[in-house]
Write a protein that binds this DNA or RNA. Structure first.
Lengths: 216, 216, 216, 216
DNA sequence: AATGAATGAGAATTCATTCAT
DNA sequence: GATGAATGAATTCTCATTCAT
């Protein structure tokens, strides 16, 4: 019935009681992984929920036990992964003292995380942008967090006198993110040769670092 | 779904008898402009053909006199604009002798073209990616042309000894494109303040140029 | 997309421009008639929209050109018919001067209208009650109008001294309506023999009138 | 839909081993009571089995240990209650010698039983009609029993010379039932003020009795 | 007996596209 | 060429029911 079609909670999939930890905890993850793969191959809109279900080896309805809607699936995918990236990045940055190292760390991290996971790379650089609404409402905020982290690396380097001070940390952060995203996109859309991303990473880092260093 | 209805001929919109250029050329253009605006606001998939029709002030069926399908509309949009960008860029590059100038030209061109047309910027950086198949089949080739043009600017500069020779022109081209695309995306998704893009352009150019210059 | 699923207008089916008056005006009516028939046979919930469409000789989607939803179909059915009943009743009452005549008129009208249309009778006495929400939200108000009309007939008769004054006109109105509704229901659920309703009408009227007359 | 899943055996809820009557009889009753409440609030079709389960404090699957299907739940509800009404009525009628008293007894019984149980009233007057098939297949026969009992009261009164003989006992029975049902329906849909029903009962009885008495 | 996660058939609704006017 | 009413294929999501534990 039409009775009431909306609920406002931001999608808190009632994770069924984790008996042992095997079956159930797995299932959500299995669905996410299947979604990543299928979305990457066919695109978000061209993918049927039933295809994700089949790929995950569950019934169609099961998807809706863990995710509120097809949209929620994409959003969850993004949130799960970017949060992971953020956490990993923060940890790694903690161990790099100099601004140069920290910048290289950001670059290697973003490209490195995706190198092993072409599908994920494709979902993030391409699919996520497939729903304007999702993009604007959900992705944007999380995404801003990530950009802020990069901008802070730049700003710190500027304060330390390592990086030139005549450019905006935020613009530089977007430049760096965009550069890496562009590299990833062409890589994911093209051959995606092994090692391609890390080779590119080094060169991008070389150029950007050189461009950012303060000249006395 | 729509994807499957897509037929593979590269979209030959039977331009109705071009009498002078008045009546018909107008209508096609009007539809394209309307599509740009609506796609930008709601996203490609969330936009109904009937909405484009209403925005263009024509009947639903009329769209199909000028475009083969909804997909064709998006592809045509992209092709029309990137071709324009390419032509303009080529012309402009002809007048810039030094590698530095030429690189700045590329940067200013890409950001400049979009600065005045936020909707177009949004369509190109976001909407185009909404159909994976479109992206892979249609956009990729044209897009490669554009990247090649940039790569050539770099390669020429390397040959002239102006740019460092230890980086791949293609990787650099992707880096540059990605950087600009990222800037545009965050601009389009965010405030999109006037002048924001050109200010950013200068800084991006400064950094990238500095990073690319050959050190003796 | 989920974007926005509700619109608040109470279902104003954009009646397509009545060219001539043949095709289009017809279609809405044709669908209503088909719905009446199918709902009566199978019940509202057991009826698929596609079945109504087939019965009406239109495509599934066409239903939605004239009605907002399956629910709207049922509500429209009810509103159209009860409004007709009300109008007819008001007209008829205008010509009956005495309270007795007026009461008989009400009874004959309600049963008479339905006698020729068994399907409609079934929809009104049975199907309409199938959606609690519809019943409470839409039917109740219109229904109250009808009850008020009956109550007024009683009250007038009381004022004129014809009807006993020791009973509430509203309770009597409900009693009368219920009695007629019950008669109709058993008739519609059972044999529904021709003439059954009018024969019953006379007897019901006899009993109720006798029960209502003021005894000096 | 659900209708089609309906199997035709008349619902043989395997009452789990009735040890004394404690455990299990309880649970069945608890489920019925919960169903009554929820069906009344939301309607039969809009109610999910899981909602009934939650209201009854049992697991979804448990419902199916006591009832064959959702439909069976409604049918059982109806049968349980109408059987109760019939038994109570029969007993009460045994103690009333005169036709007038017997008729008043019928009226007070039907309204009285429901007065205390608004939910039940709603289920019987509204929800039961929600499944046409249920109505036609299951309710109709039991219902006929009830109508027959009323008709017999009338017929007896006619034989005794108390009631007018020029009306069909069956039509009168339907009239009486309908009148009471109509009263109940408007009461359940509306305010449902306490005492409303019994006050109405007296008036309805007054009118109907007066209308039915034989005039010498 | 009780549970509730999983199932998957089923249906309403949408919307790109067509075609009679 | 232009129109827009009509079409009907296609897809998300719901929910009664099952069954392994």
């Amino acid at each position: 019935m039409t009775e009431s079609r909306f609920s406002t909670e931001p999608a808190r999939p009632r994770a069924p009681r984790a008996r042992g930890k095997s079956r159930d905890g797995d299932k959500r993850e299995r669905i996410l992984r299947a979604a990543t793969k299928v979305f990457a191959r066919k695109g978000f809109y061209a993918t049927k929920v039933s295809e994700v279900a089949k790929a995950a080896g569950v019934a169609d309805g099961t998807i809706y036990l863990y995710f509120k809607s097809k949209d929620d699936l994409l959003v969850s995918l993004f949130e799960d992964r970017i949060m992971l990236l953020l956490a990993t990045l923060d940890r790694a940055l903690g161990e790099r003292p100099t601004p140069e190292e920290r910048l290289r760390c950001v670059i290697e991290m973003q490209l490195g995380l995706l190198e092993g996971e072409r599908d994920l790379a494709e979902v993030i650089t391409i699919n996520l942008r497939q729903s304007t609404r999702l993009m604007k409402q959900y992705a944007a905020p999380k995404f801003a967090l990530y950009l802020d982290t990069i901008a802070r690396v730049i700003a710190d380097g500027q304060k330390a006198g390592t990086f030139r001070a005549d450019v905006s940390p935020h613009i530089v952060a977007r430049t760096i993110f965009g550069a890496l995203d562009g590299i990833t996109m062409t890589w994911a859309l093209g051959k995606a040769e092994a090692g391609g991303l890390s080779r590119a990473a080094t060169q991008v880092a070389d150029v950007l670092l050189e461009g950012l260093l303060a000249r006395r």
